[in-house]
Design a protein around this nucleic acid. Structure first.
Lengths: 208, 208
DNA sequence: ACAAATTTAGACAGCCTTGTCCAATTCGTC
DNA sequence: GACGAATTGGACAAGGCTGTCTAAATTTGT
């Protein structure tokens, strides 16, 4: 494990103040001196960790958004699959959980560092996702008032059942991710979908 | 300011390891010795803080759920008002933000302490809220598959636009809370509401 | 195989924090 | 006003952590 990876792990587990360099060095399998040689001091190391996580998370998010279903064969199934990818590869994975925790714990202490993340991460994520939803609406697959609102609500819905796991820093199972995505997408389509068969208006939700 | 209140503030701002007793004592306007006299040591003080916050938050949440609109005159307006109360009095206020931050930062280090919170807080909250939604559905005001899923999705939707503020520990303005609640409730009712006038199927969302 | 660069272990000073002790002072109550 | 309880400020030891330094060992490039 690289030094930054070990540092990310320890900073997340112990908090900035509680993390000590000896532990990071041990976890990385190097000597303490090497940590100082590479990164100068604790604060610089922390900044390097956050930049690394931010970069990897953003890359993952945009790669996933690129797989958004523009010409959906099965809209519901495609959106569920997209939501699962988003959660699996961006929100619930190691980098996503670590970055979220570091932002929440230390965000107020490093405003400029996390402002940078906020602009390049969530800001652009929501825009990009909103554009995809607008395209679906334009093509007649959805009936959306404000694409930005729809994008935020989509993310909120497909994560609705995972919040309690996130708040404790846990990793939801594959099954929980799928269930939350399925229930979320069905509600999303009930609200924004073009009703194809007015008869089956309320599909039964996956059992909770 | 009482010692526990000052301690809550400092623990949240600096993290458990970064909080020092001198600062807490200064912020509370007492001497360090008094802090030790009252609470024994740092860990006991931390536990007292979390218990205090948990108790107050739960009380606020259940008081707010008691104001859920069972016989709604105007379903949309009543649900929006309820969502605003929930956010104002439970999620966004001082206690709510502090408790959330402490759980996220230190939850893994005190499993038993926060398991207690989880059972008595979110667990009971969701049950109680689901029961209220089930009652609305039974009375014919909503068309709901699984009340538990609906309750979680309701909370997710009315908070959808506040996530970014929460993640940075900020306090959303009254206007942001209202807008998020309005957009969330409208989408919720589009998905779960009994369509009264099939013509006006899509109410325009508040501008984002 | 050799030279340069990197890594390592350990010691070290300086600083901060926790928790205790104690004498002096203030406060609440009768 | 007087007495007991609580609070205060300060000193203190013990321990932990950061960041530096050095000499030896190891790796790397050629």
């Amino acid at each position: 494990m690289s030094v930054v990876d070990a540092a990310a792990s320890v900073f997340c587990r112990e908090g900035y103040a509680g993390a000590n360099i000896d532990l990071i060095a041990a976890e990385a399998g190097v000597s303490r001196q090497t940590v100082y040689n590479h990164h100068g001091d604790k604060e610089k190391l922390f900044v390097a960790v956050v930049r690394d996580l931010t970069e990897r998370c953003n890359a993952g998010i945009f790669a996933t958004i690129a797989s958004f279903p523009d010409q959906p064969a099965e809209l519901e199934a495609d959106l569920i699959a997209f939501a699962v990818r988003m959660n699996r590869n961006c929100i619930c994975n190691r980098d996503g959980r670590f970055l979220r925790k570091l932002i929440q714990a230390e965000g107020e202490r490093y405003p400029e560092l996390f402002a940078e993340w906020r602009e390049q991460g969530p800001g652009r994520t929501w825009s990009a996702l909103a554009a995809r939803f607008a395209r679906l609406a334009f093509a007649g697959h959805l009936s959306i008032g404000d694409p930005d609102v729809a994008a935020r609500q989509f993310l909120a819905l497909v994560n609705a059942e995972l919040q309690i796991t996130f708040v404790l820093g846990g990793m939801p199972t594959e099954e929980e991710v799928l269930r939350s995505a399925t229930n979320g997408v069905r509600t999303f389509l009930n609200a924004f979908g073009r009703k194809k068969s007015p008869a089956g208006k309320q599909a039964a939700l996956v059992h909770a």
